[in-house]
């Protein structure tokens, strides 16, 4: 019995969590994928970016997580969360993370350099909630060169893409929330291009993203 649970939920839910957190996380684990994903327009994408106190997911920790929804072609700041993790209290962090899971649901997540973002998230979620965080990730860093190869056929720094599209990169460092809005804009443009290329639907997009990553890494 324990083995199945462990198999399904990774190492299993942290048993010491308060009941409301536990039930929220269980609910998230049991949640099905949102049904309406027949086109990019109908798919609820959640753009995610993080702030950390260093670059190494193994030794550094997260200080903040920002997420913004892109749904039906629209980005709305109203559909955003920010998780401020600078508070040291683990109990508070656990509840915040449970709330974060509630917000993202089982929507496909979008990030720039998924490996980096997801590693930080996986570490923290494992530590605080005891779960193995797995999500469907769309990696803009690899998708952009696949979709806009007339601009660049290999990955480039985010600001180069923004500049190439005539978007305002702003001055200084962007906060994760601000960065998400830029990523969201790129996603909006990318969805139009993907449709034109016949890459319809989230699975196809993830497929492109993986293929691009594989091709461009190995060739």
């Amino acid at each position: 019995m324990f083995g199945i649970k462990k198999f399904l939920f990774g190492d299993g839910l942290n048993e010491n969590l308060p009941p409301d957190v536990k039930s929220a996380v269980s609910a998230w684990l049991a949640q099905e994928t949102a049904s309406l994903e027949s086109s990019h327009f109908l798919t609820r994408y959640v753009v995610v970016d993080i702030a950390s106190d260093g670059l190494d997911p193994a030794s550094n920790s997260l200080t903040g997580i920002a997420a913004t929804v892109v749904h039906q072609g629209i980005v709305s700041p109203e559909q955003s969360v920010y998780v401020d993790l600078t508070s040291a209290d683990e109990a508070i962090q656990a509840r915040q993370l449970a709330a974060f899971l509630r917000f993202i649901g089982k929507s496909p997540l979008v990030a720039y350099h998924v490996a980096y973002v997801s590693a930080f998230l996986q570490n923290l979620l494992k530590k605080r909630l005891g779960i193995a965080f797995a999500a469907r990730w769309v990696d803009l860093a690899w998708l952009l060169p696949a979709m806009f190869d007339e601009i660049s056929h290999k990955p480039m720094p985010l600001d180069d893409w923004l500049t190439a599209f005539g978007l305002d990169v702003g001055e200084g460092r962007r906060s994760p929330s601000e960065n998400n809005l830029m990523l969201a804009r790129l996603l909006q443009m990318l969805m139009v291009r993907a449709h034109a290329k016949g890459v319809d639907g989230v699975e196809a997009l993830i497929g492109e993203s993986k293929a691009s990553s594989h091709l461009r890494r190995t060739h």
Binding site: P77, R95, A98, A99, R174, S177, N180
Partner: peptide, 20 residues
Amino acid sequence: DVEQVESMLRQEGQRRAAGN
């Protein structure tokens, strides 16, 4: 509880996202 925390996170997210 988690729900209330989520609505706080949303408020904060909205405020920060509005920044740019």
